[in-house]
């Protein structure tokens, strides 16, 4: 067994996992394969990943798997308790909650993933530029993050969205994504700046510069790939955060507008009838909790798996 090249991640604490598969010479494994070997030791994160795939899959497949039209009210069953016909009950206009939860997941997850993507792209760009070029550019960008970080973000979020409430459809969803992005890019920007500050002094970067690689080439080919781990971990956590933010906004009526519905707006719909029809608020909330929980656990697993010096079991 090639113990000399086995990473610290495999020697730390738990050795029970060292089965026959682990006798492979890890020197020949790539970054992804190594990360996967560490990741699968993290049982909770593995479960979370499977759960997240199922949740996303059911949202994508909603038009095919949901039993009813999510916006069609069954007038013979208002606020009906869960039955075999309506496994999660119906809401105050007789709409099937299971179907609505499946369709609502499309919007919640869409907003969660798109906010994450835009925030990561924007934050990465600013962080990379600040860390790589330094000087006044760095100063300017960091002062900007200081300002955004000193904003009362929740209040700002509420104020911004209060004014877009009333717009409908895709435009509204896009605005929510942009608003969530505007308040969440700072963390990744700071993180990436820090990474770049230390990476750009390394020998391999100097070597690249010596052979005439331009700034853009150094950033995209040499620096970014080395900073991928913190980006991925933060991307995961941002998805959960964005889903929560969206649900808060929709809950207070500043988020997605009817007839579009997300898990957050379903919670708002269910609230007035909570005493007689608690299933209207229980199930959408459970979906948010499960999604964010699995995203957070996944992020934690990835943090350990992507860190070559991880000593966690």
């Amino acid at each position: 067994m090639a113990t000399d090249s086995i990473h610290a991640g495999m020697t730390g604490g738990d050795t029970s996992g060292l089965g026959e598969q682990d006798t492979v010479d890890v020197r020949h494994l790539g970054f992804v394969a190594l990360a996967w070997r560490r990741f699968r030791k993290h049982k909770l994160a593995l479960v979370a990943a499977v759960l997240l795939i199922m949740l996303t899959g059911s949202a994508i497949l909603a038009p095919w798997v949901s039993p009813y039209d999510p916006n069609h009210g069954d007038f013979s069953a208002f606020n009906s308790a869960p039955t075999s016909a309506h496994p999660m009950g119906t809401d105050f206009t007789g709409r099937d909650i299971l179907s609505r939860v499946l369709y609502g997941g499309r919007i919640s997850l869409l907003i969660g993933f798109s906010s994450m993507l835009t925030a990561i792209v924007f934050g990465t760009m600013l962080g990379a530029v600040a860390g790589y070029f330094g000087g006044w550019v760095d100063n300017l960008i960091m002062r900007l993050t200081d300002v955004v970080l000193s904003f009362p973000l929740y209040l700002l979020l509420f104020v911004l969205s209060a004014f877009i409430a009333g717009q409908s459809g895709g435009k509204n969803v896009l605005m929510i994504v942009l608003i969530i992005m505007a308040v969440s890019w700072t963390y990744i920007a700071r993180l990436l700046r820090g990474e770049f500050l230390s990476l750009k002094e390394r020998e391999f970067v100097q070597a690249a510069r010596a052979v005439g690689t331009g700034s853009a080439g150094i950033i995209t080919r040499h620096l970014l790939p080395n900073a991928i781990a913190p980006i991925v971990v933060n991307a995961t956590l941002l998805v959960g955060n964005s889903i929560i933010l969206e649900s808060v906004l929709s809950f207070f009526g500043f988020g997605v507008q009817p007839p579009t519905s997300s898990w957050g707006s379903m919670l708002a719909d269910g609230l007035p009838n909570q005493a007689t029809a608690p299933w209207g608020t229980i199930y959408p909330g459970m979906m948010i909790l499960l999604t964010v929980l699995s995203v957070n656990l996944l992020g934690d697993g990835l943090r350990d798996a992507l860190d070559p010096f991880s000593t966690k079991k």
Partner: peptide, 22 residues
């Protein structure tokens, strides 16, 4: 603590009101 971090605050409030108040 993972559950506590992942739970939307307002939903937790709703559930507490449902069970302990209503």
């Amino acid at each position: 603590s993972y559950i506590g971090i992942s739970m939307p605050v307002f939903w937790f409030a709703e559930m507490l009101i449902l069970v302990f108040a209503i």
